[in-house]
Protein backbone atom coordinates (compact mmCIF):
# COMPACT_ATOMS: atom_id res chain seq x y z
CA UNK A 1 0.00 0.00 0.00
CA UNK A 2 0.99 3.65 -0.32
CA UNK A 3 3.61 4.64 2.26
CA UNK A 4 2.02 7.20 4.63
CA UNK A 5 4.36 9.79 6.15
CA UNK A 6 4.46 8.91 9.88
CA UNK A 7 3.52 12.49 10.77
CA UNK A 8 0.13 12.05 9.16
CA UNK A 9 -0.52 8.73 10.88
CA UNK A 10 -0.11 9.66 14.52
CA UNK A 11 -2.39 12.11 16.31
CA UNK A 12 -0.59 15.11 17.79
CA UNK A 13 -0.90 15.03 21.59
CA UNK A 14 -1.81 18.19 23.52
CA UNK A 15 -0.06 19.19 26.75
CA UNK A 16 -3.43 19.07 28.52
CA UNK A 17 -6.72 17.27 28.15
CA UNK A 18 -9.53 19.80 27.58
CA UNK A 19 -13.30 19.56 28.02
CA UNK A 20 -15.88 21.55 26.02
CA UNK A 21 -19.03 22.49 27.94
CA UNK A 22 -22.33 23.91 26.69
CA UNK A 23 -24.80 25.97 28.76
CA UNK A 24 -28.36 26.64 27.61
CA UNK A 25 -30.44 29.04 29.68
CA UNK A 26 -33.62 27.12 30.59
CA UNK A 27 -35.20 29.18 33.38
CA UNK A 28 -37.38 26.41 34.76
CA UNK A 29 -34.39 24.20 35.35
CA UNK A 30 -31.64 24.31 37.96
CA UNK A 31 -28.59 26.28 36.82
CA UNK A 32 -26.31 23.27 36.99
CA UNK A 33 -28.84 21.15 35.09
CA UNK A 34 -28.44 23.53 32.16
CA UNK A 35 -24.68 22.93 32.02
CA UNK A 36 -23.65 20.00 29.85
CA UNK A 37 -20.26 18.46 29.22
CA UNK A 38 -20.04 17.88 25.46
CA UNK A 39 -16.78 15.92 25.31
CA UNK A 40 -13.10 16.01 26.22
CA UNK A 41 -10.07 15.65 23.94
CA UNK A 42 -6.29 15.58 24.14
CA UNK A 43 -5.04 15.66 20.56
CA UNK A 44 -4.98 18.33 17.84
CA UNK A 45 -6.94 16.10 15.50
CA UNK A 46 -9.68 15.41 18.06
CA UNK A 47 -9.94 19.14 18.78
CA UNK A 48 -10.64 19.88 15.12
CA UNK A 49 -13.07 16.96 14.81
CA UNK A 50 -15.04 18.52 17.68
CA UNK A 51 -14.70 22.17 16.62
CA UNK A 52 -15.70 21.44 13.01
CA UNK A 53 -18.69 19.46 14.26
CA UNK A 54 -20.31 21.83 16.76
CA UNK A 55 -22.35 24.95 16.04
CA UNK A 56 -20.42 28.24 15.67
CA UNK A 57 -20.64 30.47 18.75
CA UNK A 58 -22.20 33.27 16.69
CA UNK A 59 -25.06 30.93 15.72
CA UNK A 60 -25.97 29.92 19.27
CA UNK A 61 -29.25 31.24 20.68
CA UNK A 62 -28.96 34.13 23.13
CA UNK A 63 -28.42 32.92 26.69
CA UNK A 64 -26.08 30.10 25.68
CA UNK A 65 -22.39 29.68 26.58
CA UNK A 66 -19.49 27.58 25.39
CA UNK A 67 -16.73 26.87 27.90
CA UNK A 68 -13.42 25.09 27.31
CA UNK A 69 -11.68 24.10 30.54
CA UNK A 70 -8.85 21.81 31.52
CA UNK A 71 -10.39 18.38 32.07
CA UNK A 72 -11.52 18.10 35.68
CA UNK A 73 -12.12 21.84 36.14
CA UNK A 74 -15.79 22.79 36.09
CA UNK A 75 -16.63 26.07 34.31
CA UNK A 76 -17.88 27.82 37.46
CA UNK A 77 -16.43 30.07 40.20
CA UNK A 78 -17.03 27.46 42.85
CA UNK A 79 -14.62 24.94 41.34
CA UNK A 80 -11.56 24.34 43.51
CA UNK A 81 -9.24 25.67 40.79
CA UNK A 82 -11.36 28.72 39.96
CA UNK A 83 -12.40 30.05 43.34
CA UNK A 84 -9.14 31.94 44.02
CA UNK A 85 -8.83 33.04 40.43
CA UNK A 86 -10.34 35.54 38.05
CA UNK A 87 -10.92 36.33 34.39
CA UNK A 88 -9.77 38.63 31.65
CA UNK A 89 -13.08 39.91 30.26
CA UNK A 90 -13.66 41.09 26.69
CA UNK A 91 -17.02 42.78 26.16
CA UNK A 92 -18.12 42.73 22.52
CA UNK A 93 -20.54 45.24 21.03
CA UNK A 94 -23.57 43.99 19.13
CA UNK A 95 -22.10 44.10 15.63
CA UNK A 96 -18.99 42.22 16.71
CA UNK A 97 -21.00 39.00 16.82
CA UNK A 98 -20.86 38.89 13.03
CA UNK A 99 -17.35 40.31 12.64
CA UNK A 100 -15.13 39.21 15.54
CA UNK A 101 -16.82 36.71 17.84
CA UNK A 102 -16.05 33.45 16.02
CA UNK A 103 -12.50 34.56 15.22
CA UNK A 104 -11.87 35.65 18.82
CA UNK A 105 -13.27 32.39 20.20
CA UNK A 106 -11.26 30.17 17.85
CA UNK A 107 -8.07 32.13 18.47
CA UNK A 108 -8.62 31.78 22.22
CA UNK A 109 -9.12 28.02 21.83
CA UNK A 110 -5.87 27.80 19.82
CA UNK A 111 -4.08 29.69 22.62
CA UNK A 112 -5.41 27.22 25.19
CA UNK A 113 -4.68 23.96 23.39
CA UNK A 114 -1.37 25.27 22.03
CA UNK A 115 -0.22 26.40 25.50
CA UNK A 116 0.53 29.86 24.11
CA UNK A 117 0.99 31.53 27.49
CA UNK A 118 4.40 29.88 27.86
CA UNK A 119 5.57 29.62 31.47
CA UNK A 120 2.20 30.98 32.65
CA UNK A 121 0.12 28.36 30.82
CA UNK A 122 -0.24 26.52 34.09
CA UNK A 123 -2.20 29.47 35.46
CA UNK A 124 -4.84 29.01 32.76
CA UNK A 125 -8.06 27.23 33.78
CA UNK A 126 -10.16 27.80 30.66
CA UNK A 127 -12.22 30.23 28.61
CA UNK A 128 -15.90 31.08 28.27
CA UNK A 129 -17.98 32.73 25.55
CA UNK A 130 -21.39 34.07 26.61
CA UNK A 131 -23.93 34.77 23.85
CA UNK A 132 -26.17 37.60 25.08
CA UNK A 133 -28.53 40.03 23.36
CA UNK A 134 -27.04 42.98 25.23
CA UNK A 135 -23.56 42.09 23.93
CA UNK A 136 -21.51 38.90 23.83
CA UNK A 137 -18.65 38.34 26.28
CA UNK A 138 -15.45 36.35 26.01
CA UNK A 139 -13.37 35.61 29.08
CA UNK A 140 -10.15 33.82 29.90
CA UNK A 141 -10.05 32.30 33.38
CA UNK A 142 -6.89 31.98 35.47
CA UNK A 143 -6.51 30.07 38.71
CA UNK A 144 -4.87 32.69 40.94
CA UNK A 145 -6.00 36.35 41.07
CA UNK A 146 -3.02 37.28 43.24
CA UNK A 147 -0.27 36.71 40.67
CA UNK A 148 0.16 40.04 38.84
CA UNK A 149 3.07 39.06 36.59
CA UNK A 150 1.27 35.94 35.35
CA UNK A 151 -2.03 37.78 34.90
CA UNK A 152 -0.52 40.75 33.06
CA UNK A 153 1.55 38.52 30.76
CA UNK A 154 -1.54 36.44 29.96
CA UNK A 155 -3.67 39.55 29.33
CA UNK A 156 -1.09 41.10 26.99
CA UNK A 157 -0.64 37.86 25.07
CA UNK A 158 -4.42 37.48 24.72
CA UNK A 159 -4.78 41.01 23.30
CA UNK A 160 -1.89 40.38 20.92
CA UNK A 161 -3.32 37.09 19.63
CA UNK A 162 -6.78 38.62 19.16
CA UNK A 163 -5.23 41.73 17.53
CA UNK A 164 -7.04 43.99 19.97
CA UNK A 165 -5.61 47.51 19.49
CA UNK A 166 -3.59 49.01 22.36
CA UNK A 167 -6.12 51.83 22.89
CA UNK A 168 -8.87 49.31 23.64
CA UNK A 169 -8.34 48.14 27.21
CA UNK A 170 -9.52 44.89 28.77
CA UNK A 171 -9.98 44.32 32.49
CA UNK A 172 -9.25 41.47 34.88
CA UNK A 173 -11.71 40.77 37.67
CA UNK A 174 -11.30 38.29 40.49
CA UNK A 175 -14.19 35.84 40.78
CA UNK A 176 -14.49 36.70 44.45
CA UNK A 177 -15.11 40.38 43.55
CA UNK A 178 -17.60 39.31 40.87
CA UNK A 179 -19.43 37.10 43.38
CA UNK A 180 -19.71 39.90 45.97
CA UNK A 181 -20.14 42.85 43.58
CA UNK A 182 -22.78 45.46 44.45
CA UNK A 183 -22.85 47.34 41.12
CA UNK A 184 -23.40 45.79 37.69
CA UNK A 185 -19.80 44.67 37.29
CA UNK A 186 -16.89 44.03 39.63
CA UNK A 187 -14.03 46.55 39.66
CA UNK A 188 -11.00 45.61 37.59
CA UNK A 189 -7.92 44.42 39.48
CA UNK A 190 -5.77 44.82 36.36
CA UNK A 191 -6.08 46.44 32.94
CA UNK A 192 -4.01 46.09 29.78
Amino acid sequence: GAMMAPDSLIKHPLQNRWALWFFKNDRNKEWTANLKLITAFDTVEDFWALYNHVQKASKLPSGCDYSLFKDGVQPMWEDERNKDGGRWLINLNKNQRMTDLDNFWLETLLCLIGESFEEYSEDICGAVVNIRNKGDKLSLWTKEAGRPDAILKIGRKLKERLSIPAKIQIGFQSHRDTMTKTGSTAKDRFRV
Binding site: S8, H12, Q15, L110, I113, E118, R161
Partner: peptide, 18 residues
Protein backbone atom coordinates in the same frame (compact mmCIF):
# COMPACT_ATOMS: atom_id res chain seq x y z
CA UNK B 1 9.61 18.69 32.23
CA UNK B 2 9.11 19.07 28.50
CA UNK B 3 6.11 21.09 27.38
CA UNK B 4 4.07 20.53 24.21
CA UNK B 5 3.43 23.82 22.42
CA UNK B 6 1.69 24.35 19.06
CA UNK B 7 1.68 27.64 17.20
CA UNK B 8 -1.47 28.78 15.45
CA UNK B 9 0.03 28.16 11.99
CA UNK B 10 0.60 24.47 12.73
CA UNK B 11 -2.80 24.04 14.38
CA UNK B 12 -4.61 25.65 11.45
CA UNK B 13 -2.66 23.46 9.02
CA UNK B 14 -3.97 20.38 10.87
CA UNK B 15 -7.57 21.53 10.53
CA UNK B 16 -8.32 19.70 7.34
CA UNK B 17 -5.77 16.89 7.46
CA UNK B 18 -7.54 13.47 7.04
Amino acid sequence: GTKIFYDRHFLLKCRNSP
